[in-house]
Design a protein around this nucleic acid. Structure first.
Lengths: 352, 352
DNA sequence: TATTAGCACTCGATATAATCGAGTGCTAAT
DNA sequence: ATTAGCACTCGATTATATCGAGTGCTAATA
């Protein structure tokens, strides 16, 4: 027992594999892991006593803890973190084929984006058996392909923006004076020719000022620009889709105790989730938040696995799974990763 | 005790008011109602013994039941039903002003209908403190005002249908050969002039056959009609919005026992809800389903208050609240009623 | 020095029993 | 018809005993 346990040191081979096995065991069974039963179940060639010594060390280093004296061990957040990192390092994550049935064909038939996002979120929650969340894409960066103005009513015009991604965004705009259909047709062509190729983000910038200063014959340029500027001005914010809350109710440990409150906080205060996903959006790749790594007072005992997705090579949104700290990371991490890729592929393909 | 309790008879004045009070008491407190404490709490001028006699009668007539021998009484479904009917009869339902803050202004700024429905459902769940459901309108009956075809891609056309209600429905249509923009413009005008004034329901009928047999100069009529028919063919089904599930988690009696399973069934098997709402849609006015009146094996201990809403005077959709049988009907019924009216008004106004 | 057997001890979980209290039904008096 | 009185019921609460899986520690062992 000469090992230094008072400060940080790398785990040796045996400690590492045992720690991983303990976390796995706890994730799988949900019961505290005790020395005797553990060595027996895994047919280890060490005695329970040795096991206890190792566990003691791991506890000293805060990878494990005891819920109460003389109970078995359970992982700390640090323990989970070690486990997840090990998996990430060793590429042990892999999707078994056919385990996931992303109904891409179903998705592709939908034009209405909101519907697509709902579907994806639902699928992710169904597959993961936890709750799924999705931050819809920032469309600021999608490139305009065509603008169509359609008359709706005396003073109302429907502004339709078709992006290269095939996404259709509509916005109702009020105008003060009547506009003829021919005028609208001309406006549409004018706006299409001027705005085509720019992103909404760029359009929101100084583009209108520039256009206003240019000369243009034959149409009421000012009015067309006014309409467009109005429509683009408060373009839609990314929204949050949540699905599969009911899955969390099936998890015993979530229902017991006051864990429910954590759950409620998360669902009700969408800003928490939004914040996490926006943070996820900043970087490429999978992001795992384990237990207290979610820095929110109210949220306890929850973990979140999230990833960002792209259109082309531009990060535009994020998607993830939320569940108990004791989550089946081995399944969820590749699932989220995969789903993220699917979304990226889907959105990117749409924008050819 | 000469009263006939073996068969159906109207309750006398005293029985009636006491039954209502008992149901109210149970709804409010959630505890079984006993004779002694009840007469005391309500300062009744009758003795507990008399109370017991009355309760015995009410139990014989199946308005009340005992969870177990020698416990207090709780209402049966029939008891709840009597209570709700009494309230309905006596117009005791009324909304306290400002109790509800339907953000109509918020709603009116939204064009995207799905967004509106989400908002309404969320508001209803928030106000009721239970879960809210909404069956989106059947648009079959909305009347077409304008058709716009916009180019999307080589072989893709965006079919935009603007209804009198101001609702915008979009559908992507694939075509085999290229179409010029001018052609599309002509198609739009042609289709608008021909389909304007008809409902989608009517259009789905024989209208295309008739048009095909008519003579029309100058445009490729066949193609225009093909596009329209394709777009209209699988027009969107009413969908189900659900919100506020988390509210149900706050109700102790829902969390305890296996009531959760009922809840999960309802949420997961959306067809149950859909069925109920479709039934609601058949008639005008409020509909209450109490306990076993929801004829679903899996669903126990839940009630639903729903109402249909209209566009003009055409029933098009339904909206409702679902919660425990012990639900605050007095609050929920007028709320659902009111919300239904708001939705009707909103959709109707849009169609001026 | 690492491992292991042995042992006393801990403590949540489970089972059993005792008690409490709010409620009931019934009877007899008012 | 109403009410007081009373024995009885039964879930809920509390107290107590027991069980068992687990621990830490010590001393023997490879």
């Amino acid at each position: 027992m000469a090992k230094d346990i008072t400060q940080e040191r790398p785990l040796d081979e045996r400690e590492s594999s045992i720690l991983q096995a303990i976390v796995y065991e706890y994730i799988t069974t949900g019961k505290t892991v005790g020395s005797r039963s553990f060595v027996q179940k895994y047919s280890l060639s060490i005695s329970p006593a040795t096991m206890r010594n190792i566990m003691f060390d791991l506890e000293s280093m805060e990878y494990l803890k005891q819920p109460h004296t003389s109970a078995g061990r359970i992982p700390t957040d640090k323990g989970y973190r070690f486990y997840v990192n090990s998996l990430l390092d060793s590429y042990e994550f892999s999707l078994k084929d056919r385990e996931i049935s992303v109904k891409e064909d179903v998705i592709k038939r939908e034009v209405q984006l909101d519907r697509i996002f709902s579907l994806i979120t639902k699928m992710l929650s169904t597959e993961s058996r936890y709750a799924a969340v999705m931050l819809t894409p920032r469309f600021d960066f999608t490139v305009v392909k065509r603008v169509v103005l359609a008359p709706m009513d005396n003073n109302e015009i429907l502004f339709i923006l078709i992006t290269r991604t095939g996404i259709v965004l509509t916005k109702k705009v009020m105008v003060s004076s009547n506009v003829t259909q021919d005028e609208l047709y001309n406006f549409s062509n004018y706006l299409t020719s001027e705005l085509c190729g720019y992103s909404v983000y760029e359009i929101k910038g100084t583009i209108f000022d520039r256009l206003r200063s240019e000369k243009e014959d034959g149409i009421n340029k000012e009015m067309a620009l006014d309409i467009a500027e109005l429509a683009v001005s408060d373009y839609e914010e990314p929204r949050l889709h949540i699905d599969g809350i009911e899955n969390l109710l099936k998890i015993p440990e979530m229902v017991e105790e006051d864990r429910l409150h954590s759950l409620l906080s998360i669902i009700e205060e969408r800003n928490i989730l939004r914040g996490i996903l926006e943070k996820t959006l900043e970087n490429d790749g999978i992001r795992t938040l384990i237990g207290a790594e979610i820095e929110e007072e109210k949220v306890k005992g929850c973990s979140m696995v999230s990833t960002s997705y792209k259109i082309g090579n531009k990060l535009v949104g994020a998607i993830g799974v939320i569940g108990p700290t004791r989550m089946d990371y081995e399944k969820v991490v590749p699932l989220v990763d995969y789903t993220g890729r699917v979304v990226t592929e889907l959105l990117t393909k749409m924008s050819k």
